[in-house]
Design a protein around this nucleic acid. Structure first.
Lengths: 342, 342
DNA sequence: GCCCTATATGGTAGCGCTACCATTTGTCTG
DNA sequence: CAGACAAATGGTAGCGCTACCATATAGGGC
């Protein structure tokens, strides 16, 4: 009744082909591939030979269907072009490149609704683990994560109430540290310039505010923000706005390095001396911060490591040994450079 | 014999649940979801109601297994952090966000072998389409693409011999145009500075060389390259090397904008006047080129559009109307700015 | 009125793999 | 040396879905 070879499959070898070639049952081939320890040395060799000869590659879809578990890591980030998330994603890829796991990335465009929709889609695949950026999921997204039935790692920042596990650092502390550094360097009229203003930016702003209030120097007019996505061009424009509003400005904590670079360029153009007239601090410490002229002080964050650590935690949880510490705070470092050395 | 509800599936509703709730056959539900036109208005409504009520989401793995075709676009890029590819990938994501297709990205790390390996892995999933960066696949990678049994789009550059379809532009022409612009502006000792030197960089270099030779000004000592990945820091270092080697240098065509920015910063630091003493041209025209001081002339490339166009071509091919023109040349534009205006 | 065709729906049989249980064999106890 | 038990292997029955074919009904031409 059955046709000689699958009528739909396009003729690629299946596990049954390998089994008959090796003279064993299909299930033994399956085991030899997934849990080699449970198959005798002899058969393992025969099976491997048959696999090599036929060029057999297991079908991940059939595997996922039969085992009710796909070998997929779902990753949700708000942006694909923002270097910060690109680095995290790169860390994830590098950590999984020698594993059987595939990666599925979703771009939420900083939208909670889009995040919910993608979690729904991802959930339908029964992923092996989920890695999501941020800790500000909508209630319904949070429920989806809790019921995902797989390890979940929230990355980029730390907070008090993880869905499952967390890898990141405190953006509030980062913002405060950057501002305190400007204060210690003697700057007084320190502005905050930020674009996009996602939850992490908001917390950096809160850190800035805490430092300024502690010094008795806070003034709401020092803050210049926009919901528009960040760019170097925008940094320049926002700085001009800030100066127009507050001509006595003598320092700026920039929400990120793109903004900081825009500020630096505008200072060049307007012949404002950095660091004498204006001190600049960026955030993330991209490569260019150390080369710019003058070089720019920035808060270095460990983005690649956030990706690798998130994968390590997820893999441990999959293997059954969930780590003791569910929250990994990777911290940050203030890197002092010429832009604040007066 | 059968347990009341799937023992493995975790209790999520299946197509059979929807079918019995709507009082129709499972196959009709399947059709209503995939080809609504073939199901009567009445049933379609009943089925939709059942789907909504149960919160049914089709299992993509079962679907892929049964139809021997996964709703997945495989995307192969050499880097995840390089802004150029990130933009292409963003274009792909945005174009597919309202389609049933998922996206699977592979990072080849600029390695042909890794590309082969990933094509093997991707192939095992029977993707709906493949989008790969570059036109320099190894022979065996090319064979995998030809036998993929799905539309294939090579992106980033154009060439004479597409596997299937192509979207990009001529890097040779880009390099030549940039160099000719420097020549027209009166620069004579024009250097080429490049990092990574992947095939596209090589072709830009070839374009530079063609222009220099045509002007009778070519000199191998004007070329400074390294296989090291590109960065702003590296741009600065390479420029110093170039100057040490050839102190009379009066212009540079930089393989990309990161390098160009590094060159600009070094000029600031060494008090070299741009554009009077040195003219600078970058490649790709990142946002920051227009804001830097002085602003930097660059070759604008249409990266996001490459992504969207590649998806459009692939979707057309999937729908059965393969475009007449298999090669889409999106061109580039030289954007003249202060760094070459003397 | 008959046959032909088009449209709408359903039943059956897998897709390629693994969970579950059964069977076989070898080894160790007392 | 019987009985117990672990290790190695296999058979069967699905996982949730769709391709393929069959069936039913409604119209259209002569």
């Amino acid at each position: 009744m059955t046709k000689p070879r699958s009528r739909r499959g396009g003729g690629r070898p299946t596990i049954a082909d390998v089994a008959s070639k090796a003279g064993v049952g299909a299930i033994t081939v399956s085991r030899a591939l997934r849990e080699p320890g449970r198959v005798s040395e002899d058969l393992r060799r025969q099976i491997q030979a048959a696999v090599d000869e036929l060029g057999y590659v297991p079908d991940p879809n059939a595997r996922a269907l039969a085992s009710a578990r796909a070998e997929v890591f779902g990753v949700l980030v708000p942006s694909l072009t923002n270097n910060v998330f690109a680095e995290v994603v790169r860390g994830i890829y590098d950590s999984l490149s020698n594993s059987p796991f595939r990666i599925q990335i979703g771009n939420t465009h900083y939208s909670g609704l889009e995040e919910e929709r993608l979690l729904q889609v991802f959930g339908s695949q029964r992923p092996a683990a989920l890695i999501v950026a941020g800790i500000d999921q909508t209630p319904s997204a949070r429920r989806l994560l809790e019921n995902a039935g797989c390890p979940v790692v929230q990355v980029m920042e730390t907070g008090p109430d993880p869905v499952d596990m967390m890898v990141g650092f405190s953006h509030f502390d980062g913002g405060r540290t950057a501002t305190e550094h400007l204060l210690e360097a003697g700057y007084r009229k320190i502005g905050f310039i930020g674009a996009r203003m996602d939850p992490r930016s908001q917390r950096r702003l809160a850190g800035y505010r805490a430092a300024m209030e502690a010094a008795g120097l806070f003034d709401a007019r020092l803050i210049t923000t926009t919901p528009v996505p960040s760019s170097v061009t925008l940094g320049r424009e926002l700085f001009r706005d800030a100066l127009a509003k507050m001509p006595t400005l003598d320092g700026v904590f920039c929400n990120n390095d793109d903004i900081a670079l825009g500020v630096l360029f505008e200072c060049h153009r307007a012949s404002i001396d950095v660091p004498k007239q204006i001190g600049i601090v960026g955030f993330n410490d991209l490569d260019m911060m150390q080369v710019s002229f003058p070089s720019i002080t920035s808060v270095r964050t460990h983005r690649y490591e956030i990706g690798t650590r998130a994968v390590a935690l997820a893999l441990a949880a999959i293997a059954g040994n969930r780590p003791e510490q569910r929250i990994a705070d990777l911290g940050f470092e203030l890197v002092r450079r010429e832009s604040t050395a007066r």
